[in-house]
Simulated assay, not measured.
Amino acid sequence: MKLPVGEEATRLKGWWPAHRFLVLRRLSQAFFLGLFLLGPWLGLWWVAGTLAGSRTFGVLPLTDPLVLAQSLVAGHWPELTALIGALIVLAAYALIGGRVYCSWVCPINPVTDAAHWLHETLGLQKGWQPKRHTRLWLLAMVLIVSALTGTIAWEVVNPITMLHRGLVFGMGFAWALVALVFLFDLLVSRRGWCGHLCPVGAFYGLLGTYSLLRVSAPRRAACDDCMDCFAVCPENHVIAPALRGKDGETPLILSPDCTNCGRCVDVCSVNVFEFTHRFDQHVEALPPPERSGTTAA
Rank of each mutant, 00 (worst) to 15 (best):
A179R: 05
T81E: 09
D225M: 04
L42H: 09
L90I: 15
A140K: 07
L83P: 04
N109Y: 15
L167D: 07
W117V: 12
G14F: 12
L254K: 08
L42E: 04
A30S: 13
F182C: 12
G201E: 08
M227R: 12
V181R: 03
L213Q: 07
P17T: 05
A202D: 05
T149E: 06
G245N: 04
G170E: 06
F169E: 14
W128T: 04
A48N: 09
A296S: 12
M171G: 03
L197V: 10
P107S: 10
C223Q: 09
R219A: 14
L124F: 12
S216C: 09
E120C: 08
L83N: 01
A9D: 13
Q125P: 08
V73N: 11
R20T: 04
V267S: 03
G53P: 07
A231I: 01
K246V: 06
W45R: 11
T50V: 06
L212M: 14
W15L: 15
A69Q: 04
L87Q: 05
W193Y: 15
D228G: 02
L68R: 00
E8G: 03
V270D: 11
R291Y: 03
P256I: 07
V215C: 09
I253G: 01
W77F: 14
T209P: 01
W41I: 14
S269P: 14
D257G: 00
V265L: 15
P251E: 01
G97F: 07
A86D: 04
W137A: 15
P234D: 12
R190F: 14
D224L: 11
A140L: 15
L68D: 10
F169K: 06
P234V: 08
A69D: 09
H277M: 11
P17S: 05
P65W: 11
G6R: 02
L33I: 08
G127S: 06
E235K: 00
V238E: 02
S146C: 10
W117L: 13
V270N: 09
E274N: 08
P287L: 07
L124I: 10
G195H: 00
W46D: 01
V105K: 02
G201A: 14
D113E: 15
L254T: 10
S292I: 06
M1R: 10
T50H: 09
H133P: 00
L87A: 15
I239D: 05
V267K: 01
E7G: 01
A94E: 08
C194I: 11
P234A: 08
G6N: 04
L35T: 11
C226K: 11
P4G: 12
Q125S: 14
I84A: 13
L177H: 06
H133Q: 06
V238P: 03
L167W: 08
I152F: 03
W16A: 12
E290T: 14
L124K: 05
T209E: 11
K2P: 15
F36G: 00
A296C: 05
F275S: 06
L51Y: 05
A74P: 09
H133V: 07
R132P: 00
I144L: 15
R132I: 14
G53M: 08
D185Q: 06
P17C: 05
G14S: 10
E249V: 01
V67E: 07
R11Q: 13
N236P: 15
G248L: 13
N158L: 04
V100F: 14
A91V: 13
G192V: 09
L35I: 07
A115V: 00
S103T: 12
L80G: 06
L163D: 01
R220G: 00
K13M: 07
L51V: 02
G262P: 06
G208F: 07
A217C: 13
